[in-house]
Design a protein around this nucleic acid. Sequence first.
DNA 1: CGCCAGCTTGAATCTACTCAAATCTTGTGG
DNA 2: CCACAAGATTTGAGTAGATTCAAGCTGGCG
Lengths: 238, 238
Amino acid sequence: MIAEDYRHIDAPALRRLEALAPLDQTARQALQAAIARSRKIAPRRELMIEGREVKETLLVVRGWAARIRILSDGRRQIMNFTLPGDLVGLCGQENPVSSATIIAMTPVAVCTAPDIAAAPALAQAYAVSRAREEAYLLAQIARLGRLNAHERIADLFLELLERLEFAGLASHGRFVLPLTQEVLADALGLTAVHVNRMLQQARRAGELSWQSKELVIHDPAALARQVGRAPVRVTTAG
Amino acid sequence: MIAEDYRHIDAPALRRLEALAPLDQTARQALQAAIARSRKIAPRRELMIEGREVKETLLVVRGWAARIRILSDGRRQIMNFTLPGDLVGLCGQENPVSSATIIAMTPVAVCTAPDIAAAPALAQAYAVSRAREEAYLLAQIARLGRLNAHERIADLFLELLERLEFAGLASHGRFVLPLTQEVLADALGLTAVHVNRMLQQARRAGELSWQSKELVIHDPAALARQVGRAPVRVTTAG
DNA sequence: CGCCAGCTTGAATCTACTCAAATCTTGTGG
DNA sequence: CCACAAGATTTGAGTAGATTCAAGCTGGCG
């Protein structure tokens, strides 16, 4: 019992899914069994390739990945980040083809996501997960379309904070951000140089610190107010 | 039989769904019955409101709508356009809440989308529809993040052409574009003034004409090549 | 036929980009 | 444990693409 509780609290992927929807014992066990069989993926390797058939749904257990698109002339856009507890390749359709490439940004561990047939309680968690992912895509569109550089950075950081909190990987505005400024720039539709300048400005303004991969947002609520950000919600429950 | 064929060819919504997945007679009849009970929505009225519970899935039968988000200071971003044959509010989850507002840009007709239980053949069509919608959100992200003004306009026009062709509402690079330049600007993350300038430039360059709401892309394939655009695909079939 | 929304044009400004070089970190092999 | 290399961050100067503000135009509709 104690051991079980410990695993539960400690495993970010499990924790996130539990936060999205109530899971029964069957679902929890199916997830733990799946996670136990997870495999590693090295940084820069693909979890999924654009145009390639999607064979199974993956659950990210550890590490960061990113859904990217590369233009013919080398410009790169990161559509979103994939964090522990996120599902990739979820889609109720036959013969699905991936509409973007997903690559590991850090060492990543993934497992095959348990089938809903084996644990029906997962259906709601998976559905909510997918709905949240869509909502974050919309947020990314608004960010790129209508926010300036400073707002984009703040808004993305607040989003990452919110998402990592679900998985128990962040609290009090503090989390590990294992990305380079160049990667950030590719997500924000900016250049690395400009991201750098805006980060310095935010540091000087006392909004945040970021050193040796640890980001601290000094006052998340105030920053959210400043850039006009509201948390993402996709269900009436919770 | 002839009458049936005629309805089929003529109804853009039905035509689009048939293009996404094979439908059997049951599905077709369920759709026709639903479409027959469609209701009108005036321009500027909401089909769905951010934060409000989603009660039913809607099928757009006629007209254009847009998924929008308005920032506290009045800036507006259009995330995507909703065209005839598109489904809104599709999501396999309980107690869903809309993550954005959808408003009619023209007079719109919608109906309640037939339930999958009543016509199982629709499941694949709905799933593919949802996958395509997601793919277009990704395309919008890449557009806003990494394309310049000229490329954004061309890429969006080509996307609209592609989508309207599915519904039989466009051919040979020609379709009705019932939007103002300001609306276009809100979709493209630009100002109306700049959209205007770029449109003129595109006209002068002989890329397109747009008068009295009819847009003509003179050479879609060439333009697609020029801005590096590939058609969206989400299944191995087709 | 006059009005109003939408379109067009110009000039000044600003945000973000480009290019280039210097400095700092981090990881690795000796 | 240090030295080095490679990668990442920082800074500067000049430029380009897009915005802002403002004014004039046009065409569709009452």
